[in-house]
Design a protein around this nucleic acid. Structure first.
Lengths: 158, 158
DNA sequence: GTATATGCAAAACTTTTGCATCCTT
DNA sequence: AAGGATGCAAAAGTTTTGCATATAC
């Protein structure tokens, strides 16, 4: 999964265009694995690429459908995209600095499936996000300056 | 929690107004525990109450802050509200009919807290939603006609 | 050359806000 | 009477769409 080049893109049936290649590259080169459409667009602007925000959304949506990226929603109100490495995981989001940690817990996965079955359902997918604060504030240096803290939007409602 | 009357409302420090009483009543009388702001507004319209959508949003937000309702986001892009009975639970959403089942799993809760700790965080909250289809379609009679299937928005992107 | 993709602007949707007026206390 | 609450309309924020033009195969 996650084609890293023109061949990979082609194999998904998508034409190999500049916008698609550039967006893929941004995900590969960025320090942040998790980016909103705005985040990607901002990088493109800095690079003086003439790529519109609408194209970013279109490309990300197509990439999602092709299995190249995954979309999450957290509580920010915005969609967050990341390259799909094929390994399923859930997210832990730092409310102090927005940092996103990925984790996988087999037991949680197992119980989710079991719970669905017990209620007469067939589990298709799930979305799990943990929201936490740094136990040791020193270790949470508001690291992802590009990514606004997840606490931001909740604060708006206060 | 979840004051069911004027006294209860007063105790939260909120003034007892018609819109607040009516909205509370709608949650108490409705067959659906889970409703969007639009859902509530639609009921008000049917009752010819002159209550604006903005007020519905304001009241629901205040109720959330007062602990009277809880807000969830699922994948629909809209906020879903329910009366806060005080018992924490997560949600299982039927992709066929939109039905929402509540569940609680102590082991999942435990592991979430453990995972956060292992990464140096203090868990504050979490959001877990399971998306599933009915194993036996007969038992899923598109029950919540008022509530559009959760699959709807995803379909929009296709 | 044809079908697709893109850019731009405008629209769609959910949610919030400004402000004059109304209602609780 | 005074402060908070509401309605309406307008704004904000994110995401989608229509359409003429540009690009990939």
């Amino acid at each position: 999964m996650a084609p890293s080049n023109a061949q990979g893109l082609r194999s998904t049936g998508l034409k190999v265009t500049q916008p698609r290649l550039r967006i893929l590259e941004i995900f590969q080169k960025s320090a942040q694995r998790h980016m909103t459409a705005e985040d990607v667009y901002r990088v493109l602007l800095e690079e003086q690429q003439d790529i519109g925000l609408a194209t970013v959304y279109r490309v990300l949506t197509q990439f999602e459908q092709a299995g190249i990226v995954r979309r999450s929603n957290f509580e920010s109100g915005k969609s967050v995209f990341e390259i799909n490495e094929g390994k399923h995981h859930d997210h832990l989001v730092c409310l102090d600095c927005g940092r996103v940690v990925e984790f996988y817990d087999a037991e949680i996965e197992r119980r989710q499936k079991k719970i669905a079955h017990e209620h007469g359902f067939e589990l298709q997918e799930h979305s799990l996000a943990l929201y936490a604060t740094c136990a040791d504030k020193q270790s949470c240096p508001h690291f992802n300056k590009g990514e606004a803290p997840a606490a931001e939007r909740a604060a708006h409602r206060e």
